[in-house]
């Protein structure tokens, strides 16, 4: 059983004996039945991978494998705009959000009697079903009767713009909606990370006379940097595939100027009934996706080496 598992696990990567030996796990390595346990623990995911990942990914790659599809894609005048939008969407959406999430995790870790309640409300966007939430944002931003412009009118007596009629405000609305929906989750993850920083490290720093800023730069930052970086990479991968916020908030408008690769792909696949072209649209993000995934893989292996 173990040999088949190992074979299964070696898919995609050559066996590298030196690396494996250099890493140290439990003191003295695994002994006796512990090997069997270790293999048994790896089995469930191996099974999931074999049965539910390899085939679909292979099928997907096959669907988008014809070079003619990419010729067709690049001929589409919308394509370049879409690529630029995707870069902006992912670049700004993810980094801005991660920075905010990091700051907010610092805010929430300080116990205040009322911060509990803020956290309760802060989590709500994440728990709200995406589809109605994004529709609500679409309506919220309506220039004619949307709540935002109504508030502007009632509070300041001004007529707000029609946000979704402009390229930049439309794109900002999509990015904002994406941040709104996912910020709570990443804040929680970073909050959990901060909680895991042993308090004695801070105590030791305090004994050494470190102030708040130095504690932050010498304890929090180095310990959190890895998690922060990893979360950023992961969310970039997620953001590249996200079509909901663009689809429901701006709908790609005005004049298809806020379309991202994921929505373009969905349109090809299900509006024009050309699923292969849809997959190709998403695959054209591979030059961006693959480095991200490789970086993630390296990050993960490095962190194992650190233990």
């Amino acid at each position: 059983m173990s040999s088949t598992t190992e074979q299964a696990l070696s898919v995609g990567r050559p066996f590298d004996a030196t690396r494996a030996r250099r890493r140290h796990g439990w003191f003295g390595g695994l002994q006796g039945s512990e090997h069997a346990w270790a293999v048994a623990f790896a089995l469930p995911y191996t099974a999931v991978f074999l049965f539910f990942v390899i085939y679909p990914i292979g099928y997907g790659l096959w669907m988008g494998s014809s070079p003619a599809l990419y010729q067709e894609l690049f001929d589409d005048p919308r394509y370049m705009t879409t690529v630029i939008n995707t870069l902006l969407y992912v670049g700004i959406g993810v980094n801005l959000k991660m920075f905010l999430a990091f700051m907010l995790s610092g805010f929430f870790i300080r116990k205040r009697w009322w911060s509990k309640f803020v956290l309760v409300l802060f989590i709500l966007p994440w728990a709200t079903p995406a589809l109605p939430a994004f529709m609500s944002i679409h309506w919220f931003l309506n220039g004619q009767w949307g709540m935002l412009n109504n508030m502007l009118f009632e509070l300041f007596g001004i007529d707000g713009p029609v946000y979704l009629n402009e390229h930049w405000t439309g794109l900002a609305a999509n990015v904002g909606a994406y941040i709104w929906k996912t910020l709570p989750f990443w804040t929680l993850i970073l909050l959990a990370g901060r909680m895991a920083v042993p308090t004695e490290l801070y105590e030791a720093a305090a004994v050494d006379g470190a102030g708040g800023l130095r504690k932050f730069t010498h304890v929090t930052l180095p310990l959190m940097a890895n998690l922060y970086f990893v979360c950023t990479l992961l969310d970039m991968v997620f953001a590249l595939g996200d079509f909901n916020s663009t689809f429901f908030v701006s709908g790609g408008g005005p004049a298809m100027s806020t379309e991202v690769l994921a929505t373009l792909g969905i349109r090809y696949a299900f509006t024009v009934a050309l699923p292969n072209l849809g997959v190709a649209a998403v695959m054209s993000a591979l030059p961006l996706l693959i480095p991200l995934v490789i970086l993630l893989m390296r990050k993960l292996r490095m962190s194992e080496g650190q233990l």
């Binding site: 696990l9 898919v11 995609g12 990567r13 995911y45 990914i57 792909g265 696949a269 998403v282 995934v293």
Partner: peptide, 17 residues
């Protein structure tokens, strides 16, 4: 390899699988 394999799942976004 297990963790690397896991990450391959994200090479193509879920909605396209």
């Amino acid at each position: 390899m297990l963790t690397n394999a896991a990450l391959m799942t994200y090479v193509i976004p879920a909605s396209f699988l």
